[in-house]
Every structure is written in C-alpha cells, then in structure tokens.
C-alpha cells in the first residue's frame, strides 16, 4: 500500500511526534486512573503493547476479509480476545498487578488508542507496517504512563515502586522504613510527600503540566519552521533583486 514513509518513521512517530497520550490525548481514562505507582503505569503500558500488537496484526491481516459495514464489531471481537488473554496471564503470573489495575484491564477493550490504531492505521496498511506502528504507539503510551506514574509516586508517596510479581524493589526517598526487605531506603529527599499527587487531582495536574510542556515544544518547533521558511523566501527575493 502506501510506501511513503519508512518503517523507522512509523515506529518513532508513536513515541514522540504522535504520542497517543501527550499529542493525540487518547486513552486518558486509564492514564489518569492507574498511574498512582510507577509499576502500574509500566504494567498497563506493557498490557496495551501486547493487545495493540496482536490487534493490529489481525486487523491488518483480515482487512480484506472484514466487510467495512461490520468492521467495528469485528475489531472489538479481536481486541476483546487478546484483552481476555492478558487478563488470564496476569491472574496466573502477577496477581498483585492484576488487583492493582483492576477494572482497567478489561477496559483496554474500549481503549481508544487500540481501536483508534485499528481503524486509522491497521485497516489501511500492510501487516509489517501495522506491527511497527503498534510497537511505536505502544511504547509511546508506556513511556507516557511510566513518566506520569513516576512523577506522581515520587511526589505523592516519596517512593518509586519497581516491583513485579515479587521481583524488584521499592525505592524509598522519604523517611526510612525499616524491617521490610522489599524496601530500599535511598536518601531522605522528601520529608512530607504531597498525598494529593496520588489522588485524582494530582493525576490531572501532572497530566496538564506535561501536556503543556509537550504542546509548547511542538509550537516552538512549528514557529522555528515558519521562520526558517520566511528567511529562505527573503533570501531568495534578495538574490533575485541583486541579480536583476
């Protein structure tokens, strides 16, 4: 199909230029709800990468087989199957994470990042392009969630939780907590963490600030581009004048 863009372009665009959370503002409900801990954001992101990868793969494979009148129910069926699979895997191997993510795992079915990529990309592109797109978008989503989780957890409870299925540690930057083998006391950086940051208002605050920063850098880039074009035009004009 369209071979305008390289695979690398399709991969990178999901991470920065078309980041699903910061630029496209898709999938904000789970983004705000699960990012109370770093690991939750990371786990949610990994679950989304898995579902997105296989959903894009099958939607792209079946794009000629699915009649366009019933494409949405067909996509939902494909997505729901892989979400159920993720949920079963989490129940079997990471019950802690499963409890923490709770209702947001089944809700991946209606996550607009996944349905959006199926509809906007995978249904129109080749399988390999769709897979690259899924990985890029998934990693972009994961990075965004992990970043928000990190900021919220560090400011809200002065810890960074990187513990998955009993592996890894919880890094503590607040008042030392003794006699818990899972906790590594790094330094006492934050004496009184602002609990509001891990509650819903904190989610909106962090989200808003990050959206602002990303939008600002995008605007600046656009402005620089505009200026460069203007200068080029001016130079061309000047050149034409001296020549005449």
């Amino acid at each position: 199909m369209s071979n305008k863009h390289s695979n690398w372009f399709e991969f990178v665009k999901g991470i920065a230029k078309e980041n699903p959370v910061f630029i496209a503002a898709l999938g904000l409900c789970p983004t705000l709800a699960v990012t109370t801990q770093t690991i939750n954001g990371l786990a949610m992101g990994v679950a989304v990468i898995f579902v997105l990868f296989f959903a894009n793969m099958f939607v792209s494979l079946l794009r000629k087989f699915i009649p366009s009148t019933v494409r949405i129910p067909a996509y939902i069926m494909i997505i729901a199957s892989f979400v159920t699979l993720v949920s079963l895997f989490l129940q079997a191997f990471a019950p802690d994470i499963n409890r923490a993510l709770g209702i947001f795992i089944p809700l991946i079915v209606v996550n607009c990042v996944i349905l959006g990529r199926a509809e906007a990309f995978a249904s129109k592109n080749t399988v390999s392009k769709s897979l690259v797109d899924a990985l890029g978008m998934g990693i972009g989503f994961t990075l965004a969630l992990t970043l928000i989780g990190l900021i919220r957890e560090l400011s809200g409870s002065a810890t960074i939780t990187l513990q998955f299925a009993g592996l890894g540690k919880i890094f503590n930057f607040g008042q030392p907590i003794l006699d818990d083998p899972n906790i590594v006391n790094v330094t006492t950086l934050i004496q009184n963490p602002a609990v509001v940051m891990i509650m819903p208002p904190g989610g909106f605050l962090v989200m808003g600030i990050l959206l602002g920063i990303f939008q600002n850098s995008q605007n600046r880039k656009a402005e620089r581009e505009k200026k460069r074009k203007q200068e080029l035009a001016k130079a061309a004009k000047a050149k034409a004048n001296t020549q005449s």
């Binding site: 079946l62 019933v70 129910p73 067909a74 069926m77 494909i78 699979l85 079963l88 079997a92």
Partner: peptide
C-alpha cells in the same frame, strides 16, 4: 456480512478456550 463475523468469533473463542485450558 455475517460470515466473517461468525468466522472471527469462532476462531478467537477457540483460541481463548485453548489458552484457558492451559492457564
């Protein structure tokens, strides 16, 4: 219109069934 939907449903149900059997 219906055939692809039924085919997809059967295929993915079977996939989930097998996964559940092992998990």
């Amino acid at each position: 219109t219906i055939f692809p939907l039924v085919a997809i449903a059967v295929f993915f149900s079977a996939m989930l069934g097998v996964s559940y059997y092992f998990l």
